[in-house]
Simulated assay, not measured.
Amino acid sequence: MNTHIRKFLVPVLALAAGITVSFSAAAQSDPLPSWNDGANKQAIIAFVDAVTTQGGADFVAPGDRIATFDNDGTLWVEHPIYTQLAFAFDRVMALAPQHPEWKTTQPFQAVLEGDMEALGKSGMKGLMEIVGATHAGMSTAEFEKTVSEWIATAKHPKFDKLYTGLVYQPMLELMDYLRANGFRTFIVSGGGIEFMRPWTEKIYGIPPEQVVGSSIVVEYKVVDGVPSLMRSPKIAFIDDKEGKPVGILTHIGKRPTAAFGNSDGDYQMLQWTTAGPGKRLGMIVHHDDADREYAYDRKTHVGTLDKAMDDAPKEGWHLISMKNDWKQIFPE
């Protein structure tokens, strides 16, 4: 290269590199860009700083940095009905031609006719019948394929977007931020473990082995000479309320350092997490934004937040206001 050209280019390239570094540093200076500045954002950053500062009083070894997240209502939309329930209803519609008796048999008749009042009267027993008919009688591989095909096309009735597009951007940033600071992130949900596992890694960055959920009995069988794991309609474990700490112990084997939920179904997970020694963080997503999503808490058929909201101050849990704490709700 010509000496005169080199003398000209070197400082220019250095300046350009400096500008690039400056812009890059600025872009990375805020780990939670979709969060408004405020007490909750500060609490998250202060917590992460405290537990990751080597030699600090609150330092937590990387292997013990565990954060658990409820799924429905905490990481994505749960209204007007849980997404897995929407999947079950769609499966009833798809399987109906093979079951003409469903036209006159509850609770299937209610689903086929869109009669939510009749469905509600069937209670938990009715829902379990629907789950048994739509989630069982097949191998785990077949079920995974069915879920994957459905989640790739199913859209939310209000937003007319894929359910996987209705995850909360601030929570995606939070999980990325925690992982960047040595945390392992787990889903601990009342939803079906095998319903979530096919897509959580792509959507949340959480691999299948870090998903804890409710499950049905799975049996090993040889079908047509092929070893298979077959799903039965029997419930094996409900990962909700008191079941969540049990599920965490069974699947993870350690008490979390941080836990995030949105309803009374997450109360025991938050309570058990924050009762541990050392620095802890418990946070609850409060749905109070009717304009951008939904507004509900105490009186709702899905995601009731009552006792946990009352007890949050004395337990030291932070209430995240979707309306005030989040600049945006969904990814753009």
Score class of each variant (00 low, 15 high):
V147M: 07
K161I: 01
W326Q: 11
A43C: 07
A152R: 03
D224T: 01
S189V: 10
Y163L: 03
P313S: 08
W102A: 01
V12M: 15
G253K: 09
E101Q: 09
S263E: 07
G137C: 01
Y220F: 13
F143T: 00
D239G: 06
R197M: 13
R6A: 14
G282T: 12
T273R: 14
F59G: 03
D239F: 03
A295N: 09
I130T: 03
W199Y: 15
A67T: 10
L75I: 07
P100S: 05
Q109R: 15
M138F: 10
K202A: 13
G225M: 08
P277N: 13
T250C: 01
A61E: 14
G190T: 04
T146Y: 05
H251A: 15
S139F: 02
T140P: 08
A27G: 00
A290Y: 12
I216K: 07
V223R: 11
P198G: 00
T105I: 00
D289A: 06
H286T: 12
K279T: 06
M196W: 09
A50G: 01
G225F: 09
V246E: 08
M171C: 10
S232G: 03
G38W: 09
L95V: 00
K145R: 15
P207E: 06
P157G: 00
Y220M: 11
P313G: 05
L305D: 06
E242D: 14
G63K: 12
I81Q: 00
F108M: 07
